[in-house]
Amino acid sequence: MSPVHRAPAALKLGLALALIMGLAALPAEHALWALAALLPLLLIARLARLQLRSLLVRWAAGAPFLLGVASLALFQPHGLQTSLGLLVRAAICLLALQLLASVTPISELLRTLRRLHVPVLLCDAIGLLSRYSGLLSDEARRMRRARAGRTLRTSRWQVWLLLGNSLGLLFVRTLSRAERVQAAMRSRGGA
């Protein structure tokens, strides 16, 4: 745990939001000034002992939409300048958010959301989502592997049929799991 990880989530969230809003307010012709934020961001990443490589890989996963809109922006007056500015600004914002996501555990985030008076029902849903999403995707993966083991060679349409079937089955199992979770919560004196 680096000092960056231990810093309060509200502070990190506030800093990230301030940076992103500042960049959004930057006029288009000075958009290249956004590059100035690169150095502090990299410094924070270093302080948090993050792998630069994994940060870059995750950053690149968000790039397609960026490139798409930036290339659309080419087709208008002053296209090159606008689209370059957009690209730089959005890339820096993405890096900042990536950094925020990698140094903020979801439990911290939830506590902050509760303090910000986000409705209880939504907070509960987010908490349960973070608890059960891994479980359910594991279950989906298990079902997919079992299906691959049983059906050796299939056409694409059959693959779709089988995947759709397994999603439907997953939903039915989800409902029964929700009942069990509800019963467990109730028996422990929860909601």
Binding site: L121, D124, A125, I126, G127, L128, L129, R131, Y132, S133, L135, L136, S137, E139, A140, L167, L170, F171, T174, L175, R177, A178, E179, V181, Q182, M185, A191
Partner: peptide, 15 residues
């Protein structure tokens, strides 16, 4: 409803 909401959200996420 909270358990159902949360677990359904996890379902959408996994799907």
């Amino acid at each position: 409803a909270s358990a159902l909401l949360g677990v359904s959200a996890a379902f959408v996420f996994a799907a």
